[in-house]
Amino acid sequence: MTARADAKEPLRLRLVRSARNGMTPVMLLAGPFIFLGVMIIWPLIEQVWISLTDARLTNPSAGEFVGLQNYATALSGSALPRVLLNTMVYTVGTTVIALVIGVLAAVVVNMKFAGNSVVKAILATPWAIPSVAAALIWLWMFSQSRGVINRGLEALGQDGIAWLTSEPWAMVAVIAVTAWQAVPFVMLVTLAALKSVPQETAEASRIDGAPRLGTFQWVIWPHILPTVRLLAILQVIEALRKWDIIAVLTQGGPVNSTNTLVIAIQRQAFEYQQLGMGATYAIIGITIAIVFTLAYLLLERREEKKNTR
């Protein structure tokens, strides 16, 4: 009897109750969160400590406590502003280019034409190519004397460019490669959003005599805007963490012109062997990431309020 009465109760309520007297969510979450605790939380605490020491790669856990000295050095030097500027240029550059080309590609692939699926497959492929392999392909294409890009430029009567060893071209090059790899993801997700545009609405606006661009601007664009916004955030996160493409193409050079935050952390710690200073850079990076996350969450919340009003 009781079992049947129980069954009529909405599951949500029963789950809430079972959560209150039982262990279930705790049991489910214990594994994942112990894992995250060991891999993320504990290292984070350790990191704060390391940043306050002069630990070197040769004595990773025996650094001497030096207080805020690393922070003072980092914040007063000229290296950090350059690193932050590079990170910003790289992030904004790759995000804008990937979004513009990716959305355009999605619109094109969404049209019906022969060979449509082949074009889609070709456009989607770069996403699946491992970053190291992608970077190596472009390393060869950017080669100053033998690269196919300079060969193309020379065929057009232009001078070849020292892509990877001169400013500002090194930054242009790493942005181009990163965007090349990011476009497919933007394209595929935007394409899914385009497919969900109600056909009747689009058609109705066309029959009403709206020009093609108008249909896009007034019907399609508002529909895919939330998706594009989400893609923009994902792309920013991706750009902030990207290491391999820059590491293979320029190692942060020439003269630090592609030295982004993640590149700088790795170099400080494992090239200059200054773990303490590397950890300091990392803490500064985490702080910036947290500020941006909070700003984003606040904006999101305000936007939601505006929409529900």
């Binding site: 060991v38 290292p43 390391i50 990773p60 963490r241 290491w243 773990l275 590397g278 803490i283 990431a289």
Partner: peptide, 15 residues
Amino acid sequence: QMVPQGVFLIPIYTL
């Protein structure tokens, strides 16, 4: 998810 993975390189190395 928001924090770049690279920032954990040093403490995970010592761990």
